[in-house]
């Protein structure tokens, strides 16, 4: 474990708790893409199947359990409890356009052709594009609530920090996982224009609104 990965994980935890809190407090999931949340749920479930088989550390197990639980709770709030506030007219990104190619790629490009490894690879690839429906929804509505933009900033920062973690581990531990690195770079690149808007607008107290 290194500081980059720890701060990255905490940023990730902050992001998902922030979103859950926003929906619970405002009793509304307006501006939140349920499709992205479904895909994040799929990401955690397919990646953390080893939750009960191989124990890495208390931290690792606890975080995995929290991520899965918070993802499920968020999906429940969006599609059941506060379903009336779910903005399905703007959450129109076709998930199958992401899940099918990612599933195919996981079969073709992986470290080991075993079920667990292919599911892990699927999870890594899916995570890199899972935010697209959310970014697409913001581009359609033309704006995002400030709390939602903080969620996105924390979520985008987590994988950016993981890239620093991989550089660190490459030089100090001789560790590298090309699949995770490439997918992590794609994922972080997708946030770039949002990061720009966040830094230029939200940090100056303005609402995040896309140029119409």
């Amino acid at each position: 474990m290194n500081i980059f990965r720890l701060v990255g994980d905490l940023s990730h935890l902050l992001a998902i708790l922030l979103l859950l809190w926003k929906i619970w407090k405002t009793r509304s999931c307006a501006g939140v893409s349920g499709k992205s949340q479904i895909m994040f749920g799929l990401v955690y479930i397919t990646r953390y199947l080893d939750l009960f088989t191989n124990f890495i550390s208390i931290y690792n197990t606890t975080m995995k359990a929290i991520f899965i639980a918070v993802a499920i709770a968020t999906i429940y709030l969006i599609y059941f409890k506060f379903k009336a506030t779910y903005d399905s007219n703007h959450d129109t990104f076709r998930m199958e356009f992401l899940i099918v190619p990612v599933g195919g790629l996981a079969f073709l490009v992986n470290h080991d052709f075993t079920a667990l490894e292919i599911l892990w690879t699927f999870s890594i690839y899916l995570e890199s594009v899972a935010i697209l429906p959310q970014l697409f929804m913001i581009s359609k509505t033309g704006e995002a609530e400030t709390i939602t933009s903080h969620y996105l900033f924390a979520l985008g920062s987590y994988r950016a920090l993981y890239i620093v973690n991989w550089v660190y581990r490459y030089y100090f531990e001789g560790f590298f996982d090309l699949i995770a690195i490439v997918a992590g770079c794609v994922q972080t690149i997708l946030y770039c224009d949002f990061f720009y808007l966040y830094v230029t607008k939200v940090m100056h107290g303005k609402k995040l609104s896309l140029p119409a």
Binding site: D50, M63, K64, D112, Y170, F176
Partner: peptide
Amino acid sequence: LGFHDIKDEL
């Protein structure tokens, strides 16, 4: 250099 096959990252 090689990649770890244990998945110790989240």
